[in-house]
C-alpha cells in the first residue's frame, strides 16, 4: 500500500449543538483518488474545509505529508491544494495573474502555471479578468489553482459540477494526472457517472459519519457491475429522508 499522505483522526466539527462531522477517521494514500459521497448536509464540505485548514475543528487531529495542520499550518498548507465552492479568486486579476499568485505562495516554478493552464485548456482565457468568467470557467480556474505546485493532497469540493463534457473530461484527466504524480485526491461530488471510473476508493457520509467505505477489489467489482453501481450502493446505505 502507498504511503499515507493525509491522516485524519477523530475529526469532529460542531456548530453550536449541531454536529456536522462526527469522529471522522481517514487515511488518504499517495496516488489514490477517493470519492466523498453523501446527501446534502452530510458533512462533506465541512470535512473538506477542516482538512484544508479553512475551518478549525472542534476536536481531532489532521496530518498532511507528515505535518500537523494545527501546529505547523504553513508547511501543511504548502503541500495542499483546495478547490472549494465557490472558488476563491482575485476578481480583478487575470487568470494567469491569479494562478501566478497561488504558485508563488506554494513556491512553485513559473512553468507550473503554464502546465496546469495547458492541461485544463485555460490558455485561451489566460488574460481575462476572473470577474468576467462564467461559472464553469471559474470552476476550472479554481481546480487549476488547487493543482498548481508540488501538492501532496488535493481536496475538491464539487469542483466537477457545472463543467461541459469537454471541460469535465479535461478536469478528470488533470485529476488523474496529479494522482499519477503521487498526490492523494479527495473529491466530493454528486456526479457519479464520470467520477466512478477514475476513483480507487469511495466513501459515503451521512449525518457526519462514514456509513460506507469501499476500495480495492471490492470497489472494482462494484464498478465493473455497470454504470449506476455506485449509485445503487449509495441508495442502499443512505435512506431517502429528504433535506435534513
Amino acid at each position: 500500500m502507498a504511503a499515507s499522505v493525509c491522516e485524519v483522526r477523530n475529526l469532529t466539527v460542531q456548530y453550536g449543538k449541531r454536529v456536522a462531522v462526527d469522529g471522522l477517521e481517514l487515511d488518504l494514500h499517495a496516488g489514490d483518488v477517493t470519492l466523498l459521497l453523501g446527501p446534502n448536509g452530510a458533512g462533506k464540505s465541512t470535512a473538506l474545509s477542516a482538512i484544508s485548514g479553512a475551518l478549525v475543528p472542534t476536536s481531532g487531529t489532521i496530518r498532511i505529508a507528515g505535518c500537523d495542520l494545527a501546529t505547523d499550518p504553513l508547511r501543511a498548507k504548502a503541500k495542499l491544494g483546495f478547490a472549494d465552492q465557490p472558488p476563491a479568486l482575485y476578481e480583478f486579476l487575470t487568470v494567469v495573474e491569479h494562478l501566478e499568485f497561488v504558485a508563488a505562495a506554494r513556491s512553485a516554478e513559473r512553468g507550473e502555471v503554464d502546465r496546469v493552464m495547458t492541461r485544463l485548456q485555460l490558455t485561451g482565457i489566460a488574460q481575462r479578468p476572473c470577474r468576467e468568467l462564467s461559472y464553469g470557467m471559474r470552476q476550472r480556474v479554481g481546480l487549476a489553482a488547487a493543482l498548481v505546485g508540488d501538492v501532496a493532497l488535493v481536496l475538491l469540493d464539487e469542483t466537477l459540477n457545472g463543467l461541459d463534457p469537454y471541460a469535465a473530461r479535461s478536469a478528470r484527466g488533470a485529476v488523474e494526472e496529479v494522482a499519477a504524480r503521487g498526490a492523494a485526491v479527495l473529491m466530493s461530488t454528486h456526479l457519479l457517472g464520470g467520477a466512478e471510473r477514475m476513483c480507487q476508493r469511495a466513501i459515503i457520509m451521512d449525518g457526519g459519519r462514514v456509513v460506507a467505505d469501499k476500495s480495492g477489489e471490492e470497489l472494482a467489482t462494484l464498478v465493473a457491475g455497470g454504470a449506476g453501481a455506485l449509485e445503487e450502493l449509495y441508495v442502499s446505505v443512505v435512506p431517502d429522508r429528504g433535506p435534513t
Binding site: 485548514g53 479553512a54 504553513l74 472549494d84 482575485y90 497561488v102 505562495a105 506554494r106
Partner: peptide, 13 residues
C-alpha cells in the same frame, strides 16, 4: 477583506 478566503487557504506567513 474580499480576499480573506483565498489568503487563508494559502501558505502565507
Amino acid at each position: 477583506r474580499a480576499d480573506a478566503a483565498l489568503l487563508a487557504r494559502l501558505p502565507i506567513e
